[in-house]
Amino acid sequence: MTTMSPQLTSLAYAPEARTGNRLAIMSVAAGILQFFLLFVPCWLVTIPLALNAVHQTEDHRDGGSRHLAIAGLSLAVTHFAVYVGMVIWLIAGN
C-alpha cells in the first residue's frame, strides 16, 4: 500500500485560481472614479475600455467579468449623460 504525502495531495486537488478580465475591472474602477472627477470627461477613456472588455468577455468563460464590463459601460454612459446635461444646463441657463 502506498500513501501520498499531504503536500502532494493538496497540490493535486488545489482549486483553479479564478482571475477576472483586467479590462472589465479597470472599466468599473474608472467608472466609479469618474463620478469623483465630475468636470473631467473621463468617459472618453472609460467607454472604449468598457466596450473592449464586453467584446473580450463574449465567450462567457470569464464568470462575472462580463457583468463587471457591463457595469463599467453603464457607469460610463451615465457619466456621459450627466456631463452632456450639465453642458446644456450651463449653456441654456441665462
Results as ranks from 00 to 15, higher is better:
Phe80Gly: 02
His67Ser: 13
Pro15Ala: 08
Tyr13Phe: 14
Met1Trp: 14
Thr57Leu: 05
His60Lys: 15
His67Thr: 13
Met26Cys: 10
Gly85His: 04
Arg66Trp: 10
Glu58Trp: 13
Arg22Phe: 11
Ile32Ser: 09
Glu58Asp: 14
Thr46Arg: 00
Leu90Pro: 01
Asp59Arg: 09
Ala53Gly: 11
Leu38Ile: 14
Ser27Pro: 00
Glu58Gln: 15
Leu38Asn: 08
Gly72Ala: 10
Gly63Trp: 08
His60Ala: 14
Ile25Gly: 03
Ser27Gln: 07
Pro15Gly: 05
Thr3Gly: 09
His67Gly: 15
Thr46Asp: 10
Phe80Asp: 04
Leu38Trp: 12
Ala50Trp: 12
Asn21Arg: 01
His55Tyr: 14
Ala50Gly: 12
Gly31Asn: 05
Glu16Ala: 15
Leu11Ile: 06
Gly20Phe: 10
Phe80Glu: 00
Phe80Met: 08
Leu37Asp: 01
Ala12Phe: 13
Val87Arg: 00
Ile88Met: 01
Ile32Cys: 11
Pro15His: 05
Gln34Ala: 03
Leu11Ser: 01
Gln56Asn: 15
Ser10Ala: 08
Val45Cys: 03
Thr78Tyr: 08
Ile91Asn: 04
Ala71Ser: 14
Ala81Asn: 01
Phe35Asp: 04
Ala81Met: 05
Thr9Trp: 09
Ala12Ile: 10
Pro48Tyr: 07
Leu90Phe: 12
Ser5Met: 05
Arg22Leu: 12
Ser5Pro: 05
Asn21Val: 06
His55Arg: 15
Asp62Pro: 05
Ile88Gln: 00
Val77Pro: 02
Ile25Asn: 07
Asn94Gln: 11
Gly64His: 11
Leu73Pro: 01
Leu49Ser: 07
Ala30Trp: 15
Ala24Phe: 01
Ser65Leu: 06
His79Asp: 05
Asn52Cys: 14
Met4His: 11
Tyr83Thr: 06
Leu23Thr: 03
Ser10Glu: 04
Thr78Ala: 14
Val28Ala: 11
Trp89His: 06
Leu37Pro: 06
Pro41His: 06
Phe80Leu: 08
Val82Ala: 09
Leu90His: 08
Val28Thr: 11
Leu75Met: 09
Glu58Met: 13
Leu68Ile: 03
Asp59Phe: 07
Val40Cys: 10
Pro48Cys: 08
